[in-house]
Write a protein that binds this DNA or RNA. Structure first.
Lengths: 205, 205
DNA sequence: ATCGACTTGCACAGTGCTGTGCAACGGCGT
DNA sequence: ACGCCGTTGCACAGCACTGTGCAAGTCGAT
């Protein structure tokens, strides 16, 4: 204990740390990863993991706390002292992205359930069709985005998911959701907001 | 068998149908729902489910095929015979939304892992901060969207996730991803594409 | 060298799920 | 009334995982 002055990490602490790091990777690769998988991946025996964290849930909880904490700090730091909303948003996104980039692979994979995985897989043809339309729009100059067409297709897909959640949470009326979705998707593709609104209104009668 | 002419569904078929319907709801409420949960929810015994589907995986597979099929049809139908990309996209989204609305609750929940659930929960403060900035932007007229600020926050969050996936899949270079993310988020909020690009370029040096 | 903290390996009980077998039961058409 | 198909209820083996107990080991620090 006396040696535990500044900077020194007992091997126990190092183990704890490594377990957390590995667990993050492992759990987000497969949200149902067992304690054994995690332990082995960390080069340790299952029993040892239980020595540091009383239960599976405790481990996960610690993990989530750490990730959210750092992300929260980055987000706040990105927009401090900026009064223009646009610049504020831009700075936040850039700041968050730095971290998100570390968790990128993890977060994206955590999102994917086994169920969802299968769905997205078979949805590939639809996504490709969408990509085709987007590419044509970009080529013709109707759309405008720094993203290549396939990436834009990903964005559109996720935007619909986000809107569904918004409706589920009562943030948007179900009746208007379709129109809002269409307008927002077009806007994200670079179509001026006014044009997008007008076009959708016309289509929707 | 002779009675199985048009329109008549044997009770077995009706059961199969109901099992599929209930399974969809149940599985997407909890991707790890057991066969027993599904069976009971369908008012049937577990053994009966196995009578219709040889395994859990077979059931899920059937389910996914059905959903994707109908969605695919809607997406194609929405854009047939339309040559303007913008209108094409708008029509597709509106068409898909009709169905998506049915699966809305399901898809959104399928997206959520238990792990992810915890993360989003603790991320609420960050999301609220973001909502505040967005609201100010909407009020000041810097942003323009048919969506209320909180819904727009959802969309932004999911857009980042989509971009992470795009990077993971090699559709966007990691170096540019941050800038692209910022520009796309701003654009989706209704900031003209040119302004968004310029602002981000300036911030990024 | 010896103490103490950490780790290991093994064993165990408990739980919950899957897939299957089998005998009994139900209704519906003929 | 009979037969058939689908359904039921139960029982079973197999598997994977969780959390815990305990004795023996290992490594660093004193």
């Amino acid at each position: 204990m006396a040696s535990m002055t500044t900077g020194t990490t007992s091997r126990a602490d190092a183990n704890r740390r490594r377990i957390l790091d590995v667990a993050l990777a492992e759990l987000l690769r497969d949200p149902d990863a067992s304690m054994d998988q995690i332990a082995r991946a960390a080069g340790v025996v299952r029993r040892t993991v239980y020595g540091h964290f009383p239960s599976r849930e405790a481990l996960i909880s610690t993990l989530v706390d750490e990730a959210v904490e750092s992300l929260s700090v980055a987000h706040a730091a990105g927009r401090e002292g900026v009064e223009d909303p646009a610049e504020s948003v831009a700075r936040s996104v850039l700041a968050v992205w730095e971290l998100a980039d570390r968790y990128r692979l993890l977060i994206a994979l955590a999102q994917r359930t086994v169920t969802m995985q299968g769905i997205r897989e078979r949805l590939a043809p639809v996504r490709e069709a969408a990509t085709g339309v987007l590419r044509r729009g970009l080529d013709e100059g109707v759309f405008s985005s720094p993203l290549p067409a396939p990436a834009l297709a990903y964005v559109h897909e996720q935007m619909l998911v986000a809107l569904m959640e918004a409706v589920n949470d009562g943030l948007v009326a179900a009746r208007e959701a379709g129109r809002c979705a269409a307008v927002t998707v077009l806007t994200a593709a670079g179509v001026p907001a006014s044009e997008a609104t007008e076009l959708v209104a016309k289509l929707n009668d």
